[in-house]
Amino acid sequence: MTDTVLNAREDARARGGQTSEWMPYLPASSSPYCPDGVEPSALTWAETVAPGGYTHKVVARGTRIRFDDPTGDACAHVIVYNALEPVERLNVADTLKIPWQAYLDAGHPLLSGDGRVLASIVGDTSGHHDAFCGTTTEAWCLQKYGDAAPEGPFPAGRSLFVKAAAKHGLAPRDLPPSVSFFQGVRVDADGAFEWRGSAGEGKSVELLAELPLLVLVANVPHPLDPRADYVVGPLRVHAWRSKPTGPDDDRFQVTPEAHRAYLNTIDYAEARGL
């Protein structure tokens, strides 16, 4: 009965306490999927993102962020920003060019256009990722699925990023090219993209926030996914307090380029008193 305010309130409150397959877990320590080896009390973000859904969070420097693909069909499209100055953001070109490597895996830094490491990839059991194709647009979904309404069954990754960015005061011009995890692409000798798809269920990727980050995530099919249907699985996200990369870590000096990138990052953090 929702005929009066009191009845409506009772009806609304009776809905509390339920669960769904796709939801944030609050407090994060209550997550039913706390990663092995992580103290639940250290969790600062726990969520299962729906197929075709998105999430976003500002996380502290030193936060470790883990993406899990429980079904093998997730595709985590990700953009990261310096949360303190979002004009500093993921620069995919520098992220490939400076490490001299097009294929993302553990140890690869996600670089900004300002010569700093926004996040380090510190764990990867998938190895199937892509930094060439970005995410989908409405135009793409329209030609592939015949529909692209953001509220419908075939949302484009860009539509979700637009909304996620807006919730942090950012406009479409603040959306740079993104990277995607869990669905892989390779480049053949002629430049053609070869679809590798998923590495299977139960894979994970871990990022380490080297600065305070705004993280935007859209969970939509990769643009080159050859399946005619819109197939994407749930995406789990967990984050917990840890430490940013420092001189004691092997990756700090793994290459001269990475070394100077970490020096630039720490220089910025020190100057800002982070």
């Binding site: 995919v92 194709c133 970005g134 647009t137 409405e138 406009a171 479409p172 959306l175 993104s178």
Partner: peptide
């Protein structure tokens, strides 16, 4: 606000290089 998009350009043509015939696409595709 509509501007060049390297990933859209590459994904639509299915190739990482720009050659004759490549359509340079925007962030809206």
């Amino acid at each position: 606000e509509e501007r060049y998009s390297a990933p859209d350009t590459l994904a639509w043509q299915g190739n990482a290089y720009v050659r004759t015939g490549t359509v340079l696409r925007s962030n809206l595709g």
